[in-house]
């Protein structure tokens, strides 16, 4: 299939960027979106031009490194997949595809389609961990956990921290990410101990970094490649309220 691409090109963090048109031809329907960009880059390199910079690592949908805002949607037109798992059969032959970097004040563009997502690391560093002594590895099943909580914690832990929630949110809010991280720990016994401080510290860091406020639009949930639920945001609001009041 042939495609017309409009790609955001920006030589460096502080340089001005612009959209540049490219044409790719004879792309297999079974190629992944990133493979299509690899083909483009190979052509650019052969012509002596600078290849398009984009983030990627595992290409298996598990690391959260790939990004890209494709035709108005983070991770493109398919639901519940990352860009690396997006296939070209989701596009029509001859279609124009606009590719933009994540846009948010705390995610500055480094080059072309690459953004700096270390703001997420800073939020985790603010409290997204367990620091109490929990002893050696316990026997399986020696700590009683409600099945329901184990499932909810596991669902929250599916977050790969890609930032699609921030990219999709009209307010560039990080609430879905932060709430998933708060939830996965608050639901389990070892994490509960520090739950109060954790939620306050992580929310404070999120605000400080300049993410927007949640307006309960739920675009984050709709676009999350791991289908993290906004019930995590409600849980975080609850945790926060309880932490403040007690």
């Amino acid at each position: 299939m042939d495609l017309k691409l409009k790609i955001w090109r920006q030589p460096s963090a502080h340089a001005d960027g612009k959209f540049v048109d490219y044409q790719v031809t004879k792309i297999s329907k079974d190629a992944s979106f990133l493979e299509m960009l690899d083909i483009l880059n190979e052509e650019l390199v052969n012509k002596g031009e600078d290849p398009v910079a984009f983030d990627h690592d595992c290409r298996e949908g598990i690391c959260g490194m790939c990004s890209l805002f494709i035709n108005g949607r983070p991770h493109g037109p398919d639901n519940a997949v990352t860009t690396c798992q997006l296939h070209m059969r989701k596009f029509k032959d001859g279609e124009t595809v606009t590719i933009e970097p994540w846009r948010a004040k705390p995610f500055p563009v480094l080059k072309d389609l690459m953004v700096d997502r270390s703001a997420f690391d800073e939020i985790i560093q603010a409290g997204g961990f367990v620091s109490i002594a929990t002893g050696g590895v316990p026997d399986a099943n020696s700590i009683p956990i409600r099945k329901q909580n184990a499932d909810l914690a596991m669902d929250a832990a599916a977050c790969i921290g890609c930032g699609a929630c921030v990219a999709a949110c009209k307010n560039a809010s990080a609430m879905l990410f932060v709430s998933a991280k708060v939830s996965q720990l608050a639901l389990l016994p070892q994490g509960k101990v520090e739950a109060k401080e954790r939620v306050q510290k992580m929310v404070a860091k999120m605000d400080e970094l300049g993410f927007g406020n949640c307006t309960n639009t739920y675009a984050c949930e709709a676009e999350c490649p791991k289908e993290i639920s906004v019930t995590n945001i409600a849980r975080m609001n609850r945790e926060f309220l309880v932490a403040k009041l007690s």
Binding site: K6, F19, F69, N71, G72, R73, P74, T98, E100, R103, A104, K105, P106, A168, K170, N171, A172, S173, G210, F211, G212, N216, T217, Y218, A219, E221, A222, E223
Partner: peptide
């Protein structure tokens, strides 16, 4: 202020 530069293709997904 959280998104000083917007998207060219506007995002359309929302629930509310």
């Amino acid at each position: 202020m959280a998104r000083p530069k917007g998207y060219r293709v506007k995002a359309g997904s929302e629930d509310s």
